[in-house]
Structures are given as C-alpha cells and as structure tokens.
Amino acid sequence: MKTGIRAQADSSVDARRRRLVLALPLLGALPYMSAVAAPHAAGDAGLSMARKSLALMGTRVDVVVPDSKASELPELLQCIDAAFMRMQQLERLMSRYREDSDVARMAAAAGVKPVRVAPEVLEVLLQAQRLHAQSGGALDITIGAVNKGWSFEPGREQVPSDADVKRALALVNMRQLVVDPKMGTAFLQRPGMALDLGGIAKLPILQAGLQTLQDKGIANALINGGGDVLIAGSNHGKPWRVGVRDPNAPQQLLGAMELQGRGVVASSGDYERSFVRNGRHLHHVLDPRTGWPTQGVHGVALRADRIEDVNGWGAALMVRGNAALAEFSARNAGIDVMAGLSDGSHWLSAGMELRLQRVPAA
C-alpha cells in the first residue's frame, strides 16, 4: 500500500542519485526502501547512528537513533529493542492474520457477542469510525470480508469473481461495527463480517515505538515503516531528510523534505502489492463501495506534525479520487499533500510545493 518513503541525510544531489541507483533492485520487490542511507555528508563522517530493522506488519521497519560516541551504542540498541517489543505487542493485537488477535476474535464472534479488546485497539476502532464519517465512507475497515477473496502475494495472486465480491460487499457496513468505550468492547453485528486495520493501524503502532524511545529519554529518532516515516528531534543537529518516491515512476524519487522537531510522512500507493491480470492493473487498495481496486490516483504522500491528522487519509484519498485532493487540502491547511495521477501528472498542495525539494532527473 505504501509509496516507499526513504529517510535521507546526505545533502549532495550526486550522492542521493548514487544511493537511489543502489536501492533500485529492492524497490521493485519490497514495500520499503532497504535502509536508512549514509546518515551524513562527507564532513560529518565521524558521527554515527544506532539502527535496527525488523519485519513487522508485512513490511520492514527501521529504527534509527543518532549517537555521538561509541559508548552510547549498547544502551541505544537496548532502547530500540524495547521499541520493537512494543510494536510487536500491538501488531499481535491488530493483525487479521493471527487467530489470537483482537481483530480475529471479533470476526469469530461476529453476529454473536461483543468482544473485549485492548485499549489500543479500541482507540484505533474509534479513529476508524471518525475517519469513515469525515471521508464520506472512503475508509471502511469492515472491508475485511472483501479482502478474503483477494491475494496479492507473489506467485499466489487471486482475484475473486464478481459474484463473490457482491456477496462480500453486503457485509461491508461501518454502522454495524459497535464500539463501546465504557465497556471496552467491540461488536460486529452480522455473521461473516471481518475487519482489516491495514490502512489505519500502522501509524499508531509506529508512534507507540517512537513513544517508547522518548519515554527512555531519547529525543532524536526516526522510524521508517514501509513508507511511513515518523521523526523526532534532529539528525545530529540537522534536519532529517525524507525522500518521497514518485507514484507515477516508482523506481525514482520525486523529491525530499527536511523535517525537524516532530513530524510524519505517510504514503499510500497502487504498485507495491499489485499484479496485472488480463491487462488490468490490480492492487490492494480496495474501494469499499465496489470491492475492486481504486482508480485515478496512483499514490498519495501526506506530511503533517501529528499522525492523527493523516492516519488513513492516503487510502481514503485514493478511493475518493482526483477531485477530492483540492477539497481535502483546503480544509487541512497544515497538511502537505502530493498525489500521482493516472494521466502521469502530479498534484501538489501549496505547502508541498514549498517543502518538497525536487530531485533532478538522472
């Protein structure tokens, strides 16, 4: 689902090009940029990073913390391990692929009884309900029933029949997801209903990892999870550089942004988990109104200070299409927006035009 946002710190255009070329073999196969690139320009060669990577949520998550001396490294790595443990804990609760997750238990009890869920899951469900209303239904986590008929795993691609999609769509209805914050329960009212939190759970999970680092006194860090990047503080006193992949040409970067303090860049795209069947490009961002992949927008990247302002909106804007971009931007002046459109053009908000430093064509 993600357009592949890459953390970058080298200010040299030539160096950025070289790193991009080296990463190209990975871009076509994996939903992330392979790692955080060389963290400093040549003059900063004495500075270093503590970093670890782990497979989470169907992608690779990189955690990067600047360190100033070698003696800090063991302690920083322990803090990073704690952040990963927290993210793994939340993934176990929200994954639809684990039988013991809260999401799976809700599906098993659909139409039967409410299920007590963890507070973190409850909050994501409430966020999903709010976003469903704000987006006019473009984001609907009850699309899990439709997703069962699709497979985007390489070598095991699967397309449901029109009849299967129609039957599953009858089970897509956010009004039949009842969340009771006082009781701490959630209830899918019809048998066969299922949730898919893939479009809205990742950012809160990454945020929990970042919060774990901050609770341990780490003020400067970056977490890159399959194209979603969260930053805190700075990179050895300099802004973090976050590169944005071009949704219309996924093997290239469209540009880079310098971020400092706190911030998030979230992205969605139609080419990471995708395949072509009978000449039709099919991808995993499904329209809850049709049960079929979205059309018109190849990918969206959003920059904001808080994850709450962008969480879920990448996929929602792909569902709503080109016409929704200007409306969303006008209502959310503090969010920078970039979208790659099906005609090969790009739509950028005024804020994104100012912030995005274009990478010259190689």
Rank of each mutant, 00 (worst) to 15 (best):
P154H: 04
R156F: 15
E157S: 09
E157G: 01
V159R: 15
V159W: 10
V159C: 10
P160R: 01
P160T: 09
S161P: 03
D162L: 10
D162M: 11
D162T: 05
A163M: 09
D164G: 14
V165N: 07
A170G: 14
Q176D: 15
Q176V: 09
V178H: 13
V178C: 13
V179I: 14
V179H: 13
V179Q: 12
D180Y: 13
P181Y: 13
K182N: 14
K182C: 13
M183R: 15
M183Q: 15
G184I: 13
T185V: 11
T185E: 11
A186M: 12
A186E: 13
A186G: 10
F187N: 12
Q189K: 15
Q189E: 15
R190V: 12
R190Y: 08
R190L: 15
G192A: 09
D196F: 00
D196A: 03
D196Y: 05
L197V: 03
L197R: 06
G198H: 01
G199F: 01
I200Q: 00
I200V: 02
L203T: 00
P204Q: 08
I205V: 11
L206Y: 03
Q207M: 10
Q207I: 05
Q207S: 14
Q207L: 12
A208Y: 06
A208F: 07
G209D: 03
G209A: 05
L210R: 00
Q211W: 02
Q211V: 02
Q211A: 13
L213E: 00
L213D: 06
Q214A: 10
Q214M: 10
Q214D: 09
Q214K: 11
D215L: 08
K216G: 14
G217L: 11
G217S: 06
G217D: 00
I218R: 01
A221S: 12
L222F: 01
G225V: 03
G226N: 03
G226K: 05
G227F: 09
G227V: 01
G227K: 07
D228T: 03
V229G: 06
L230F: 02
L230K: 03
G233T: 08
G233R: 06
S234M: 12
S234G: 07
S234V: 11
